[in-house]
């Protein structure tokens, strides 16, 4: 269907959106019911069922929705203009993710520059230390103002062990993914598979190490979510980052499956690029995280 200016493809009615909305409702609602039940110390079966069905709906929806998108692309329904819409859409989505992390980094900044010093008696509002005479402001904050409610941390994680390895893994993975992309543009499918595969392995390696690190934190260092603001910010930032690496890895695995099926051409591979952008974004977040959470 060669046209000089193809019409913009407006998809026909679709049941995926409503399924997605329902899936979201069940997932989040189920989580809420479950947490609520835990808080009230009553059984959480209903919540579990709701959450699980929500997740299943979401998974099915993703598969179905993306499958239909892939089918449409492969039928040639998508014009370059539509491709551009996808690109814009993905970039703005990543921008929204940037802002999500921005709020968390802002929190860390505020805590370290204002709240903790104030509680320890420094700065404009140092008067607060009247209420916490035993408290000593320091970062990493091993001992919270009220250590009975928020038990102290024995030790924090040494940035030069696992976190450094993780940094190397993730930076390398960004690089290998870039190589994969170049291979794709050259139509070099073997190299593409190779580099993509390596990227996935690096990503999974990162995740494995991070899980190990969490185990160590909880079991050996007494560094937990409940150990005051250091633990809270530490797990929030690394945790949300980890969740993003997980999602990124899943995306890469899906891309790998599609590559194996022979999808993507040197000039049309938006899905691949979107996945790559996401991965690079996650990588950049890690660099900030490594510096502000672990290093300084």
């Amino acid at each position: 269907m060669a046209q000089s200016q193809p019409a913009y493809y407006v998809p026909p009615q679709s049941h995926w959106p409503i399924i997605a909305a329902a899936g979201l409702f069940f997932t989040l609602g189920g989580t809420a019911v479950l947490l609520h039940a835990l808080q009230q110390e009553s059984g959480g079966l209903f919540g579990q069922i709701m959450l699980l069905s929500g997740l299943l709906i979401l998974a099915g929806m993703m598969i179905g929705w993306f499958a239909s998108v892939i089918a449409e692309t492969r039928q040639g329904l998508y014009s370059p203009k539509l491709d551009k819409s996808f690109r814009y859409g993905m970039s703005w989505f990543i921008f929204s993710e940037v802002m999500f992390f921005f709020a968390f980094f802002g929190t860390l900044f505020y805590i370290r520059v204002f709240a903790v010093p104030w509680l320890g008696g420094e700065g404009d509002k140092g008067l607060a230390s009247m209420l916490w005479p035993q408290f000593n402001a320091a970062w990493p904050l091993l001992q919270a103002p009220n250590p009975e409610q928020f038990p102290p941390i024995r030790e924090v994680i040494n940035p030069w062990h696992v976190p450094l390895i993780n940094t190397i893994l993730l930076v390398t993975s960004s690089f290998t993914l870039w190589l994969a992309h170049k291979a794709l543009k050259r139509s070099d499918r073997d190299r593409l598979k190779l580099w993509l595969g390596i990227t996935i392995i690096l990503g999974l390696g990162f995740l494995a190490l991070q899980i190990m690190e969490y185990f160590e934190a909880y079991n050996e260092l007494d560094l937990t979510l409940a150990s005051g603001i250091y633990g809270a910010t530490f797990f929030m930032l690394t945790g949300f980052h980890g969740a993003h690496v997980t999602i990124g890895s899943i995306i890469l695995i899906v891309l790998m499956l599609r590559v194996m099926r022979g999808h993507f051409t040197p000039d049309k591979h938006f899905a691949f690029e979107a996945g790559a952008w996401y991965w690079h974004f996650v990588d950049v977040v890690w660099i900030f995280l490594f510096t502000t959470v672990y290093l300084i």
Binding site: L35, L38, Q39, T107, Y110, I111, F114, A115, V116, W118, L119, A128, L131, W132, L141, A144, P145, N146, Q149, F150, T224, L225, A226, G228, I229, Y230, G231, A232, T233, F235, M236
Partner: peptide, 15 residues
Amino acid sequence: VHFGTSFFNAAGGGD
């Protein structure tokens, strides 16, 4: 509320 953090609680170093 649910996971024992102290972002908004001075007793844990939050604000």
